[in-house]
């Protein structure tokens, strides 16, 4: 029973990774690609690692896997925020596609310069 559960979890997580790969190919700009790529970074990784933790009998391995999940859940949003802000600052052509542009309100001198 537990084996079935762990198998389902691991395959679901791997499917999320494939979906992210497809999203990386299909979407046309950096921010929408990040939208696809950040799903396996938290949910997919957590599913695969929980599946592995169920499968490995040693409880110390479970603690290590839990530590990796915690690390990833705390660092993935920070990394995505940094990359998104850098992509926004580097690509002026993207700014016209954003409906609500709160970063432009923080940088009034740049938005007035670019029109």
């Amino acid at each position: 029973m537990l084996t079935v559960l762990s198998g389902v979890l691991m395959i679901t997580g791997a499917l999320l990774a494939v979906i992210a790969g497809a999203g990386l190919q299909r979407f046309e700009n950096v921010l929408s690609r990040m939208h696809a790529a950040t799903k396996p970074a938290t949910l997919g990784l957590a599913l695969v690692l929980i599946g592995a933790a169920i499968q490995i009998p040693d409880p110390r391995s479970g603690v290590k896997l839990l530590l990796v999940i915690l690390l990833q859940f705390s660092t993935a949003p920070v990394g995505a925020h940094l990359v998104g802000r850098a992509a926004y600052g580097a690509g002026p052509e993207m700014r016209g596609r954003i409906d609500v542009d709160e970063l432009a309100m923080d940088r009034p001198e740049e938005s007035s310069a670019s029109g």
Partner: peptide, 23 residues
């Protein structure tokens, strides 16, 4: 930035792969 996103996803996949091998 594109390459950074792709590399980050690749590292996540590597972590998943190592966990799968451990299982």
């Amino acid at each position: 930035a594109d390459r950074t996103v792709a590399l980050d996803t690749l590292l996540v996949i590597v972590v998943c792969g190592i966990a799968t091998y451990a299982a």
